[in-house]
Simulated scan of single mutants.
Amino acid sequence: MRVLLIEDEPDLRDLVTAGLKAAGYAVDAVGDWPDAAILLDLADYDCVVLDRMLPSGDSLYALDRRRRAGWSGPVLCLTALHTLPDRVDGFHSGADDYLAKPFAMEELVVRVGSLARRAAHRLPVHLAHADLRMDEARREVHRGGILLTLTHKEYAVLRHLLVHRETVVTRTALVEHCWDEMADPVSNVVDAVMAGLRRKLGPPPLIHTVRGHGFLLGRPDPDDL
């Protein structure tokens, strides 16, 4: 999943970025709304974490304008403005959740994950395909009843393939949804993660390469069963 963090205080921005990345999210982080607006026009984010008081002013005004223009991405306000009127203003302006500073990183990670899952076409917590099972709440993956140990990137790539199972997913789509803006779409990062993921999933193969197009999470070949 890909998260946009908008926070003007550098130390806190670095701390939140590190915490979200440690939880497996790809994170783009900026310090003010004008920079965020550019990224929002270029990419689809699973969640936006938004500080209110930015150098350009209260970000709720910009959020409200974007909502009125039809943008529907999930937003969590992370702010020191924590009174009841502050929270009500946040929800009226289009925030989906509101977390006051100071906060616990574990709670922020859980709230971001909850918003992202709700926004992803109302996907269920449990995703399944053939004998593959993914539990989003526990961040666990089983195949044939066996628990697999996946890296954060392997988990993110597999999740995207599960969401779009039996549909060809391009390398570009995987980079856009599973890596941050620093990733090089022409590098071999996708192939490297895919190789590790295939090895851990084991036989018979579920992830198939569609030459010139991308990857397909399909059914095992009957000859492999």
Rank of each mutant, 00 (worst) to 15 (best):
V88G: 01
R118I: 02
H164I: 05
V210Y: 04
M134T: 03
V169D: 00
H129E: 10
T172M: 09
D180I: 00
G144S: 02
T149F: 07
R118M: 09
A100W: 08
H177Q: 15
L174C: 07
A130F: 13
I207R: 01
L108Q: 08
P102S: 12
V141G: 04
N188V: 11
H213A: 12
R171W: 04
E107M: 12
G214T: 00
H121L: 10
F91L: 13
W179M: 02
A119N: 12
G196M: 01
R211I: 11
S114E: 14
R118C: 06
G113H: 02
L201V: 05
V109L: 11
G113R: 05
L132A: 04
V186K: 05
R111Y: 08
L158R: 01
D97H: 13
E136D: 13
E106R: 15
H152K: 13
G94I: 10
R139S: 13
M134A: 13
S93L: 00
I146V: 15
M182N: 12
R139T: 13
S114H: 13
A104R: 14
S114A: 14
V190Q: 04
K101G: 05
E136R: 13
E136H: 12
M194W: 03
C178H: 04
T167V: 13
A104M: 15
A100R: 09
P185M: 08
H208T: 09
R117D: 07
E154N: 02
D89S: 14
R198K: 11
T170L: 00
T167I: 04
D135M: 11
L127W: 05
L84Y: 10
A183Y: 01
G214E: 00
A156F: 01
A128N: 12
G212P: 05
E154H: 05
H142A: 12
V186W: 07
S114P: 00
H152W: 11
D97M: 04
R133H: 15
T172V: 09
A128P: 00
L84T: 14
S187G: 09
D86Y: 02
M105R: 12
T167H: 15
D131G: 10
L206G: 05
L115A: 09
V193R: 01
M105Q: 15
L115G: 04
F103D: 06
G144H: 11
V210G: 02
I207N: 03
R122C: 15
G145W: 03
H160Q: 14
E166C: 07
N188C: 08
L162Y: 11
H121I: 01
P203V: 07
L84H: 11
Y98P: 00
H126A: 13
E154L: 06
R87K: 14
A116P: 03
E181S: 15
R165Q: 15
L99I: 05
L148W: 06
L206C: 06
H208L: 08
G214M: 07
C178V: 01
